[in-house]
Amino acid sequence: MIASVVVLPIWVLVGRGLFGAPLAQAIVPLALLAPFLALQIGAVAGLTLARKEVRGPRAVTWHDVRLVGPWLLAIVVLGMLVVDGSGAASGSALTALVGAGALTASAALAGVLGLLVVLAGFVIGYVQVRLLLLETRTRLGAYVDQVAQRPIVASDAVFERPGGPQAGTTIRLERGASD
């Protein structure tokens, strides 16, 4: 998950070029998208790793695999679908693999998937924050319960009987002349 912070934005930026698709005018929007994706992936990875449930065994839970895995896979697919329309040599990695007949489908899927990837990053970040807060709340509640059950013992405590020398004494705070 940590490696995906660097690898996936680079893949979206230059992955299509590895399949032979042109890399001209589509590089500008991707140069803006790649750092944003890196921040989103980094935030989700950080929130996931901040949970003790993940930190202890040093492995993500199945919930995280089901939630974050498809999102990261969608980012990989986005790197294959982004279309570069630089004149007659328009194409994407998908069109390099399947053929130029897939150019319209690739362009449509790239637009929709690009938006969904960004929105899903926000939703997954929210879910990870919520899981972190719920786990912290549970751990804090367990600690408070544990502390509340411990007896408080002070070896130098002095207890007076209810009818002792200070029974019935009232302490009153009044405003003085200096206040």
Results as ranks from 00 to 15, higher is better:
125 G>N: 03
143 Y>R: 13
156 D>S: 15
84 D>G: 08
41 I>E: 05
137 R>T: 09
151 P>S: 14
149 Q>Y: 00
29 P>Y: 06
175 R>P: 05
84 D>I: 04
2 I>H: 04
154 A>W: 06
130 R>G: 01
19 F>H: 10
36 F>K: 02
43 A>F: 04
20 G>L: 07
122 F>L: 12
98 V>Q: 04
74 A>P: 06
81 L>K: 13
175 R>Q: 12
129 V>T: 08
155 S>D: 15
158 V>H: 08
87 G>D: 10
98 V>G: 00
67 L>H: 03
49 L>D: 06
68 V>Q: 14
120 A>Q: 07
153 V>D: 13
115 L>A: 15
107 A>G: 07
152 I>R: 15
115 L>F: 15
13 L>Y: 15
74 A>C: 13
96 A>H: 12
84 D>L: 05
140 L>I: 11
100 A>I: 05
162 P>R: 10
171 I>Q: 03
112 V>T: 14
40 Q>Y: 00
116 L>W: 06
55 R>C: 01
120 A>I: 00
70 P>N: 13
144 V>M: 13
4 S>P: 01
40 Q>V: 02
140 L>M: 08
134 L>W: 05
69 G>A: 14
133 L>I: 08
67 L>G: 01
24 A>G: 13
155 S>C: 00
132 L>E: 11
8 L>D: 04
33 L>A: 15
84 D>F: 05
94 L>Y: 11
90 S>D: 13
23 L>Q: 14
35 P>L: 01
42 G>W: 05
156 D>N: 15
60 V>Y: 02
123 V>S: 09
132 L>S: 12
31 A>C: 10
119 L>R: 08
154 A>C: 01
111 G>E: 03
3 A>F: 11
51 R>P: 05
81 L>Y: 10
7 V>H: 02
148 A>N: 12
130 R>T: 14
41 I>Y: 04
143 Y>S: 12
137 R>N: 08
45 A>C: 14
170 T>L: 15
15 G>L: 09
102 A>M: 07
124 I>Y: 03
177 A>H: 09
70 P>K: 12
111 G>H: 02
